[in-house]
Computed example of a mutant assay.
Amino acid sequence: MDIALHTKKMKSKRIVRLTDTRLLRLFKDEGISGAKVDEEALEVDRIGFQEMLEYLTHHEVDYVVTLNTSRLWRSDIVKVLVHRELKKYGVDIRSIEQPQYSIHKKDPSDFLINGLMELLDQYQRLEISLKLGRGRNKKAQQGGYAGGNVALGYKVEKGKKSLVIDDRQAKTVQRVFDLKEQYTSWTLTQLAEQLNEEGHRTKQGKLFTKVQIKRILDRKAFYSGLYHYGEITANGKHQAIL
């Protein structure tokens, strides 16, 4: 796949001939002409093409010049990918053997391929989501941290995927349950006011509200050592606070 980058010497509304352009750089892929596709990343998997895209990020270019568009793609999927990348940089294609070719011309097949690729992209995202969900469910069934918001009293150490106790926050959690047991008739608002008066704060360093107190009380089973994730409940691997 041989690709030459050109820029115009002068701007004009008329069609510019190749003699009116200046060669900037030549890119070449050794071996088979055309291009391969990285199906997971949905991008053209050729070293020369990727080097060209890197060049476009730092230089002003008007045209990618090639002998024939078949040097750039051999399938409609690759064609759409090439068009997508070049349009990002406002670059058109000049083909020596196809002088009238332009990526800006409307082609009904492009709409079809673009639609199919959008569906493929959605399918891949859904497939990844399902795989992640299965992995998280399996971890939850074993009592391990499966992701999501970390409850007050715990933290996730950097580089690890397990819950460990945050000593300062754990004292706050314990104090909530102590107050609830000591003052059974107190409302959630009264519990929050007492915590705030004693200097306790949320993870974000803010004052407690009745909503946050209820959330702590509702997690009594979790703070006692059980792990709950979706419909799964198991003996947690995390250390109990209560």
Rank of each mutant, 00 (worst) to 15 (best):
E97S: 15
W73K: 02
V82L: 05
S75E: 09
L81M: 03
D92L: 03
V78K: 04
D76I: 13
L81N: 04
K88R: 14
V82G: 00
Y89R: 01
K87D: 07
S95N: 10
D76Q: 11
L86S: 07
V80A: 10
E85A: 07
L72R: 00
S95C: 12
V80Q: 09
L81V: 01
V78T: 10
H83V: 07
H83Y: 14
I77T: 11
V82F: 09
L86I: 07
D76V: 13
I96Y: 09
D92S: 05
Q98N: 11
I77G: 00
S75I: 04
R94D: 12
D92V: 03
K88G: 09
I103K: 08
E85M: 02
V91T: 10
D92A: 02
K79H: 05
V82K: 02
E97Q: 14
K79P: 08
R84I: 00
W73G: 05
Q100F: 14
I96D: 04
Q98T: 04
K79C: 08
E85T: 01
E85Q: 11
K87M: 07
K87H: 11
R84S: 06
D76H: 09
R84L: 02
K88D: 09
I77W: 04
I103N: 10
K87V: 07
K88A: 11
L86D: 06
S75Y: 00
K87F: 05
R74W: 00
R94C: 07
S95Q: 04
R74Q: 12
K88Y: 03
K79V: 02
G90P: 13
I103G: 11
I77H: 06
L86A: 07
Y89A: 01
S102D: 14
R84T: 10
D92P: 14
W73N: 08
L81W: 02
K79F: 00
S75H: 04
E97K: 12
D92Q: 05
